[in-house]
Design a protein around this nucleic acid. Structure first.
Lengths: 200, 200
DNA sequence: ACTAGACTGCACTGTATAGTATAGTTATGA
DNA sequence: TCATAACTATACTATACAGTGCAGTCTAGT
C-alpha cells in the first residue's frame, strides 16, 4: 500500500501559505491552493480537514519561527550591551520584515476580528519574543549595564524605536525585502536613542 | 419630486462603516449594510455605484479625520516643548486607538494586498500627520528647544515610542477603548525617553 | 502479481453574494 | 393636485466557493 508522506503535507502547507499571504484568508480558494500544490482537492482534504485548520497550522508555524528567531538573536554573554542590542535589532528587523513574515503579520491583523487566530499568532510569536527580551534587559540592568527601570517598558520602547520607520510596510500593496544597509541605519539610530535614555 | 438627501447618504456611510469594521471588506455583504441602514438594496445602489466605491469613501473620510486630528493636537506657539509633546501624545493615542479609527487602520492593513486602498489610507492619514509633526519638530529644533538632527527620524521615533506598548491592540479580537490613565502613563514614559535622546 | 489505500478528476450539493431588473408605492416640489 | 423621481420588496442572473461523493487509476509493500 501507499503511505501519506510528510513531504507532501509540507508542500501543501507551503503552497497554502503562499496563496494565503497573497490573497488573504477569504480570498484564497482551496482550488487555488490545490493548483499551486499540484494535488487534487480530495488529496488536500485528506491531509487537512478544512480551510481553517490549514490556515491555523500555517499561522502557528509562522509564529513559532518568529519567536525562535527573536530568541536566537540574543546573546546573554555579551560584555557590550550596545553592540549586542545592535546585533539583535538587525536580526529582528531582517526577520520580521522579511516578505514571508510580514505577510503573516498582516494576515494575523486582518483575521483578528473574524477569529482568535490573529491573537493566537501574536501570543505565540511577538509576545514570546518580548518575554525573552525582557529577561535579557533585566539581566543587563542587574549587571549594571542599563538603568534600573521597568524592563517591560524598556522592551516595548526598544521594539517601538526599531520598527518606528517601517510602519508604512504594513500598508504597501507589494512587499519587498528591506535593504540591509537601510536596516543598519535604522537599527543604529534606534539603539542610539534607546541608550541615551536607558544607558548609564 | 423627491430629492436624495445628504443625511441618507451619511446614514448609509455610517452603517457601512460599522459593518466593514466588524466583518472586513469581503465579509461584509451589501444586504447587511442595507439592513443596518434601514434601506433597500436598490436605494443603496442609487447612492453608491458599488461596494468598492462605498468602501473607498469610508477609508478616505477616516483617513482625513485622522490627519486633521493629528494637526489639531499640535500647538506651535507653546514655550515648553516637553509639555506640548505630552499633550500631543495623549491626543494622538486617544484618537488613533479609538475603536473606530483602530478598526479602520486594521482594515487598511487587511486590504493592502487586495487593492491600493490600504496605502491610500496611509498616505492620507498617517503620512499627512507625519509631515505636520516633522515641521513642528523642525521648528522646535531651530528655536533651540531640541537637538538639531534629522527631524523625520525624530518624528518616527516619537511615534514609535508612543505606540510601542499598544501593538497588541492590532491583534485583539474585541476592540475596547483605552483607559485615559493608561494613555497618560504611556505618553509620559515615551516623551521622557524622547527628551532624553533629543532634548538639550 | 496482488491488494490496500492513496490519489485523480469530475460532478454535485448547498450556500452565499454582487449587482440588475421590475413592478408597484410613497413623498414632495411646483 | 399631480407628475416626477425616490423608494421598497422581491425576484433574478451570474458567479463563486467549501466540502462531499464516487468511479476509476496508480503505487508501494508483501
Amino acid at each position: 500500500m501507499r503511505a501519506k508522506s510528510e513531504e507532501k503535507r509540507q508542500s501543501i502547507l507551503n503552497a497554502a501559505s503562499e496563496v494565503f499571504r497573497v490573497t488573504g484568508f477569504e480570498g484564497a480558494s482551496m482550488s487555488d491552493i490545490c493548483a499551486k500544490a499540484g494535488y487534487s482537492r480530495a488529496t488536500l482534504y485528506s491531509y487537512f480537514p478544512s480551510k481553517e485548520a490549514l490556515f491555523l497550522e500555517i499561522m502557528l508555524a509562522g509564529g513559532q519561527s518568529q519567536a525562535e528567531a527573536i530568541t536566537a538573536a540574543l546573546d546573554p554573554a555579551t560584555p557590550n550591551i550596545k553592540e549586542s542590542l545592535i546585533h539583535f535589532g538587525k536580526a529582528l528587523l531582517t526577520f520580521i520584515y522579511s516578505p514571508e513574515i510580514l505577510a503573516l503579520r498582516r494576515l494575523a491583523i486582518a483575521e483578528a476580528t473574524r477569529s482568535d487566530f490573529g491573537h493566537l499568532f501574536y501570543t505565540r510569536s511577538r509576545k514570546q519574543g518580548e518575554v525573552v527580551l525582557t529577561a535579557f534587559l533585566k539581566q543587563a540592568m542587574d549587571a549594571g549595564k542599563l538603568r534600573q527601570v521597568d524592563s517591560s517598558v524598556a522592551v516595548a520602547h526598544l521594539s517601538g524605536l526599531l520598527e518606528s520607520e517601517l510602519e508604512e510596510m504594513f500598508y504597501r500593496s507589494e512587499i519587498v525585502p528591506l535593504d540591509p544597509l537601510y536596516i543598519d541605519r535604522i537599527t543604529n539610530s534606534a539603539v542610539n536613542v534607546f541608550m541615551a535614555a536607558y544607558g548609564l
